[in-house]
Amino acid sequence: MYKIVSKTELAPKIKRIEIHAPDIANKAQAGQFVILRVNKVGERIPLTLVDWDKEKGTITLIFLEIGVSTEKLGALEAGAVISDIAGPLGNPTEIKHYGTVCVVGGGVGTASAFPIARAFKQIGNKVISIIGARTANLLILEEDMKKVSDEVYISTDDGTKGHKGFVSDVVKMLIDKGYAFDRVYAIGPTVMMRAVANTTKPYNVRTIVSLNPIMVDGMGMCGACRVTVAGKTRFACVEGPEFDAHEVDFGELLKRQMAYTTEEKLALQRLQERRCSCHE
């Protein structure tokens, strides 16, 4: 059992929790994730490590309540326990001194982008961050990103804050302005990562994306997370989650992510019905 030490709501339906998991905190590196199971009937779901504290033995996760598991997780308060967390899983981000690195976070993906931006900054890269959300009140970690970046750009789909449009538009604007990025890291919804990949490809800027396919065990056993990269099948959990954005078959990934949409809706509906009947 793993105890939730603290909990904060960052934006509507976006929560941050800090969990006591010393073994994971001790080993965590930027770019890695955990697999967790909220309770005894729960699914195993992957969540990216946002932060970790070796001294306190805690890890921090940020998630959007979007399905049955994240809804259940979001309903837990500080002091409650989670059945299972395994990690750190996946390969860490290759943190090197590249020069200028552009880190792009879309939606709740900004949370996953944060430790990567921080790690790049720590070893002396110039970090340009671009973070985006659908609308201003869903934008997260602006202050945290400012602390670990040389410059931060913001975009919202509806223009309520920063540039009106997508983060990929900002990437293009900056490149056209003359920014010479040695690396671009994009983390967020698959369509956003595809848009960034399509943006940087004509400029030949090496771009890395952190993929988030469906996973079950997260340790290389099931192959649910298989993605096609450069024409070859790869397991995102053990060979990724980061891959060369220009080689990823995003169309296939999008379809694979949709495989259980019907069941996900049904499970969520059931959870909400049960909650309603509890309040009667």
Binding site: V41, E43, R44, V216, M221, C222, G223, E263, E264
Partner: peptide, 26 residues
């Protein structure tokens, strides 16, 4: 499915009890 994914969903995660458990199988 790999047999591993199929059997992990069914055995370890008890997907045959979905939606009483959260892991689906189709």
């Amino acid at each position: 499915y790999s047999s591993n994914e199929f059997l992990i969903r069914v055995n370890l995660m008890k997907a045959y009890e979905f939606p009483n458990v959260d892991t689906p199988i189709r």
